[in-house]
Write a protein that binds this DNA or RNA. Structure first.
Length: 469
RNA sequence: GGUCCCAUCGUCUAGUGGUUAGGAUACCGGCCUCUCACGCCGGCGGCAUGGGUUCGAAUCCCAUUGGGACCGCCA
């Protein structure tokens, strides 16, 4: 081991998009490494050439980068380390810890099915174990698992796990095509890279004894294990492509902030007293494996939405102004600038739970004309407010500075002169300026729009009402 | 079927023998108010079941039930 330095890794196989479950495993590894000033390695487990796809490698890397889960080493591709795995298997063979097996795979498969049908444990009968066979076409290499005793390890989250070695199998560590299997590659790599904390989904809990046997055969110390509970779909079954396993990047496109995703994922299985909302920095400071729960959880999209709203509210205007631009462009406003979004963000950040929502709410700002919602038009743009709107237009026309304070003062006088309350005229003004009955505060809207647009839109509303007579 | 893991409001969770079982979200009501949000206040709602241990159990033990994972030349 490399002294006391914590070394963790995230080791996805590129057979699908990075989804919530994988992202959380990556997050816990990353947080733990950061917390302890350790090293976080990204390793791509692509020994299955059939199912591994380049596009998924790209997706995983892009998603991790977007989330800000940056690695200190890698990405390391297992497919490029075949020689290394070979040397490990070679060594095991030489030391009599592993052996060639010439059994016919189809026959084995048949036996397995029969065993299951009989209600027995399907397991290799170890027929080749002591035959001293050599390499041959179609031969695989199996590990010699201990026949008696127990294999035990202390999991940081699950506690002591004990299995009887009788229940273990002589698993294949090298396929007939010379490529290593998952278990061999994982152990060989973790040893080579100095990984001393294996933090992974608890679907690997039962794989751990098998891997420990490989460590033991190699005479290497086993790492610390932390098997984190799985994230389940709404139907309480394992998250998969079919239900609810949305790619992480889909959340980006839906207007979620990476900080919010991180916050939500961290609180899935991990807790810190009654605190629900965390910045990434706080998570690094407060994270610990001891506070990870044992039971599986369901990902709650509602809670993520709430958290996203909070992170938006607590993000800087500058940051949001930048992030918002592509979402507004997506709505067809091609020439939106940061100057525009800087005006919009402060008045929209308290009322938006996603950037998509914020973009939609921004629409009132663009262009000169607004389209009146039918009901809003009928209810509020009525002849009885005509004189008020005309007077307001005249007064605003006199105003040189469209600051919130100046506008407010102007309104106080305007309302006073007409002996009315803001409540009575607010909605007609709102509809005139935005076309809608719902918008940010009137003064905020006017300030953002600026004098030219405000006067223009008031004039247009005035004409529109006149045309109704 | 075997092995292993898990079990507190719908959901995420706090809780480690003595609490009116707390918080968050969602939902409902109210306040604030130029609409909508934000914010604040209140409400609804939970210890899977049965046995033990104990003066006392959400908490410890056992069983049952339920859920999950693994049992591949997938990872």
């Amino acid at each position: 081991m490399e002294g006391d330095m914590v070394v963790t890794r995230f080791a996805p196989s590129p057979t699908g998009h990075l989804h919530i479950g994988g992202a959380r495993t990556a997050l816990f590894n990353w947080l733990f490494a950061r917390k302890h000033n350790g090293k976080f390695i990204l390793r791509i487990e692509d020994t299955d050439r059939q199912r591994s796809k380049e596009e998924y490698v790209k997706d995983i890397i892009e998603a991790l980068k977007w989330l800000g889960l940056l690695w200190d080493e890698g990405p390391i591709f297992q497919s490029q380390r075949l020689d290394y795995y070979n040397s490990i298997v070679e060594r095991l063979l030489k030391e009599g810890k592993a052996y060639y097996c010439h059994c016919d795979p189809e026959e084995l498969e048949k036996k397995r099915k029969e065993a299951i049908a009989r209600g027995e444990k399907p397991r290799y009968d170890r027929r080749c174990r002591d035959l001293g066979l050599g390499p041959a076409p179609g031969a695989v290499v199996r590990i010699k698992a201990p026949l008696t005793g127990t294999t035990q390890f202390k999991d940081i989250i699950k506690g002591v796990i004990t299995v009887n070695n009788e229940d273990l199998d002589d698993i294949i560590i090298m396929r007939s095509d010379g490529t290593p299997t998952f278990h061999l590659a994982v152990v060989a790599d973790d040893i080579d890279m100095g990984v001393n904390y294996v933090i992974r989904g608890d679907d690997h809990l039962m794989n751990t004894p098998k891997q420990i046997i490989i460590y033991q055969a190699l005479g290497e110390p086993i790492p610390n294990y932390a098997h984190i509970p799985l994230i389940l779909g709404p139907d309480r079954t394992r998250l998969s492509k079919r239900h609810g396993a949305m790619p992480v990047l889909a959340y980006r496109d839906m207007g979620y902030l990476p900080q919010a995703i991180i916050n939500a994922l961290a609180r899935l299985g991990w807790s810190y007293g009654n605190q629900e909302r965390f910045t990434v920095q706080e998570l690094i400071e407060k994270f610990s494996l001891e506070r990870v729960g044992k039971s599986a959880s369901i990902f709650d999209a509602e809670k993520l939405l709430d958290l996203n709203g909070w992170h938006i509210r607590n993000s800087s205007d500058d940051y949001l102004a930048k992030e918002l631009i592509p979402f507004i462009k997506k709505l067809g406003i091609e020439d939106v600038t940061e100057e525009d979004t800087r005006k919009l963000v402060p008045i929209l950040k308290k009322r938006s739970k996603t950037l998509v929502e914020m973009a939609e709410k921004s629409l009132f700002y663009f262009g000169m004309d607004v389209e009146y919602e039918k009901e809003a038009d009928e209810k509020f743009l009525t002849p009885d407010v005509l004189d008020l709107l005309i007077d307001l237009r005249n007064r605003l026309n006199e105003l040189s500075e469209f600051s919130e304070k100046a506008l407010e003062e102007l309104f106080i006088k305007f309302l006073d002169d007409h002996k009315i309350k803001l409540k009575e005229i607010a909605q007609p003004i709102r509809v005139a300026l935005t076309g809608k009955t719902v918008s940010p505060g009137l003064f905020e809207v006017m300030q953002a729009l600026g004098k030219e647009k405000v006067i223009y839109r008031l004039n247009r509303a005035i004409e529109h009402i006149r045309s109704k007579k």
